[in-house]
């Protein structure tokens, strides 16, 4: 990286209260304060958000797609965690 080359930041936007922050994209900025301001201009200029997070891309540790099996498969065989697993007699409401 040359010194005129700014680091990359990931931007997360909360589109409205009650929702989680969602990844919107990335941008370059010299530091967190500027990253936040750039994110405001870039990702919320049509009022798409009420709150922003910026995270240095280098600070993110991601699961590897190669680990997909050991990481996520154990969850896939536990359908009883999902409500659709259970049969409810017809006519029973509010369940």
């Amino acid at each position: 990286m040359t010194n005129s080359d700014w680091p990359l930041w990931e931007v997360f936007v909360r589109s409205r209260r009650g929702l989680s922050h969602t990844h919107a994209g990335s941008l370059h900025a010299p530091d967190a304060e500027m990253a936040l301001r750039n994110a405001r201009d870039l990702y919320t200029r049509r009022s798409e958000g009420v709150s922003l997070w910026v995270v240095p891309s280098s600070a993110i540790t991601a699961s590897s797609p190669d680990e997909k099996d050991p990481f996520f498969e154990p969850a896939a065989d536990k359908p009883y965690r999902h409500p659709t697993f259970y049969e409810i007699p017809e006519g029973v409401r509010h369940l």
Partner: peptide, 11 residues
């Protein structure tokens, strides 16, 4: 001087 600033100055 940088694309992010195009957006900021225009705002």
């Amino acid at each position: 001087p940088v694309l992010e600033e195009e957006v900021a100055l225009a705002n």
